[in-house]
Design a binder for these strands. Structure first.
Lengths: 188, 188
DNA sequence: TCGCACATGTAACGTGTTACATGATTCA
DNA sequence: TGAATCATGTAACACGTTACATGTGCGA
């Protein structure tokens, strides 16, 4: 139980990469391609962020990189999560949804949800969806209140922008409810 | 027409602040309170980001700060946009929507939309909404394609996460269409 | 042979985060 | 008297962005 020195928390990008590596080992280049071509690309991308991120994860002991095709002229480094990386991932996934997360970090929540299959425990997903539903409902109330008490001199555009936010969260709410049933069905 | 030295572009936070200052002059503290309590808070917040941002805007010549209540024991600095700040705002608002914006910077687009009332030109708003509609439609196609060609071994959760993204953009699409009519009506 | 995809990195830079610091006013 | 609010800042830090750098393998 030694205290770790330099125990910085991983960044969102770190978790995005760590999650991908849980599916199967990959090189930095493979990871880059995935980030570039999929919706995960918000936590992007480009060598300047991902190679440093991988070294960070190595330093934290969460992934391990082994040089593949070492004899070849074009070797590549394959990364896989360490046991420590796996348990850190589980810890991150099992967290409660913080009150602020829905308002300020919905993307982070969706990233966590996307990887929630790694915890092989259906209840965890359902609990997540329920907490999310609750959080979204609460925040929706706040937003609606903001719309009701909107400064009268404000432009139509700013009012409409707030309305867009509300619609977005409404969509999340519907999605969460539907996902619950979808997920219940799918787990037989 | 001298070339400016150190002509860095303003950051999203800068534009958020500059836009607020267009409504009426305010102090840094006032701005902070708004960011803390409204949905604008994503471009947040806390003295450590906003006071430096204001000095940045001053350095760029986009806002001007004047000390108010100087004789008082609790003076405050009121900021207002300069002519240069106003024209920079118009430039920023008048930009075309870049192909990538919809996928990677929807928040930035909505921020721009919120301030679009500052251009006193209804056509600009309509043009924006049309470009946005088009961009969202295109990106929706991409996302649906990603869902269709989803790796078969992937978890239900990751599939559902992608579905959530799709629902979100669908909501934006509906909103954009509705906003067009709303806006047409509202401008008489 | 030309260019593109593969493959991995480094360096400068600016920005936001977090934590700290200071002091006045107002109200309980 | 003490706490909350008003009001403005600074300093360390780490991260992502951008641009640069290097070299192989492969197909046209």
């Amino acid at each position: 139980m030694e205290r770790m020195k330099d125990a910085r928390r991983p960044t969102p990008l770190d978790y995005a990469l760590l999650g991908l590596l849980h599916q199967h080992p990959m090189s930095g280049y493979d990871l880059r391609r995935i980030l570039e071509t999929t919706a995960l690309g918000n936590y992007s991308s480009s060598p300047g962020s991902i190679y440093p991120a991988l070294r960070r994860l190595e330093r934290l002991g969460l992934v391990e990189g082994r040089v593949d095709r070492a004899e070849s002229l074009r070797p590549r480094k394959m990364f896989r999560p360490t046991p420590r990386g796996q348990s850190e991932m589980r810890r991150w996934l099992s967290q409660e949804i913080a009150p602020d997360d829905v308002a300020r970090d919905m993307d982070g929540l969706m990233l966590r949800f996307a990887y929630l299959g790694l915890l092989d425990r259906p209840t965890a997903t359902l609990r997540f969806l329920e907490q999310m539903e609750e959080g979204v409902q609460e925040y929706l109330g706040e937003l609606k209140n903001q719309l009701a008490t909107f400064p009268p001199r404000a432009s139509i555009q700013s009012r409409l922008a707030l309305a867009a936010g509300i619609e977005g969260y409404r969509a999340y709410l519907r999605w969460a409810r539907k996902a619950k049933t979808h997920f219940k069905e799918a787990r037989r």
